[in-house]
Amino acid sequence: MKNPIIYALDFDGVICDSAIETGISGWKAATQIWPDMPVDAPTEMVELFRQARPIIETGYEAILAMRSLYLGATVDSLYQGCAEQFQALMQEAQVDSAQLKKLFGDTRDLWIAADKAGWIGQNPLYAGVVEKLARLNQHSDWYVVTTKQERFVRMILSGAGIELADERIFGLDRNLSKIEVLKILQDRHPEQALHFYEDRLPTLLKVAQQAELANVELLFAAWGYNGAAEQAEAVAAGFKLVQLGEFLV
């Protein structure tokens, strides 16, 4: 008998710790726009990106974050005003978000074509998550709700031995917001409780404003790309803070 809970899981920062791969892909893509950057991402830049990773909502923004860091931006400055910095970089390079999304995806595809195992290796699932997802496959309906391109999600899950049907992966390709996806899942499973695990507080705050989604259980993944300040803010806003160990039970 199926578990009455439907799981809607963000991918990066909930299932997969993709910060290093995202940073390296962002750097590789940035070098194609700004050839003054070295071909290989310096280790210290990748580490700075990992610290700044919580600001990234959609993968292509890693291109702009890496360019900003190369130009001397601090992690703190990105937290304080990355939107303005990113917009200025896009205007300077005369590129828009659609072009950057394509460049980011193409850059990943080239890396995968050259070294698929190495690329997957830079996208590890959090400790214990493989076993958790395998158990969910046996007794629960679960979905991936992400801004990542779906083919990358499939590749990473498959590399970890987890199979998930295409119709259960809602990614960037569908041009749907997470709010829209949650409404689809709620309509698809009207008699079951929907639990949404997300590591970005702004996303949860947007979902919480939707009256139609008032019955969705919103869970803040403390093991993902967020910090102590955001966690305290999440608790103050009434969200349940979940540690990795609690999710794995």
Rank of each mutant, 00 (worst) to 15 (best):
Y143G: 12
D40R: 13
L157A: 02
F239L: 06
I15W: 00
P38G: 11
Y126F: 13
Y60E: 04
M1I: 13
I179Q: 13
Y70I: 08
I15S: 00
R67C: 12
F170Q: 06
Q122M: 08
F11D: 00
D106H: 13
E57K: 13
W119A: 02
L219G: 04
M155I: 10
A228I: 14
V242C: 12
A52V: 05
V39I: 15
D17L: 02
V130N: 02
F104L: 09
S140K: 07
K2C: 08
G26N: 04
T31Y: 00
Q149D: 14
L182F: 03
L204M: 07
K206R: 08
K240R: 15
R135C: 08
R154G: 10
K116M: 15
K240N: 13
A236W: 04
L125W: 00
M90N: 05
K132I: 10
G224H: 01
P35D: 09
L64T: 07
E246T: 11
H195S: 15
V39N: 13
L133I: 00
S158H: 10
D96Y: 07
H189A: 09
Q231S: 07
K116L: 12
D96R: 08
Y7M: 14
L103Q: 07
V153D: 02
L157Q: 01
Q80A: 15
F239C: 08
Q94A: 15
L89E: 01
I120H: 06
L205Q: 12
Q94P: 01
A52T: 08
I20D: 01
G159T: 03
E180V: 09
I169F: 06
I156N: 00
L241R: 01
T43K: 15
G72V: 09
Y60T: 06
K102N: 14
K132S: 05
L205A: 11
S25I: 04
F86M: 04
A98R: 15
L182C: 05
K240I: 11
S140I: 04
Y7N: 13
Q51N: 15
N3W: 09
P42K: 05
A232D: 07
G227E: 13
D115M: 15
S25D: 04
I24P: 03
S97H: 14
Q209P: 10
G224L: 05
A19D: 05
L219W: 02
T203E: 07
P35S: 09
L213E: 11
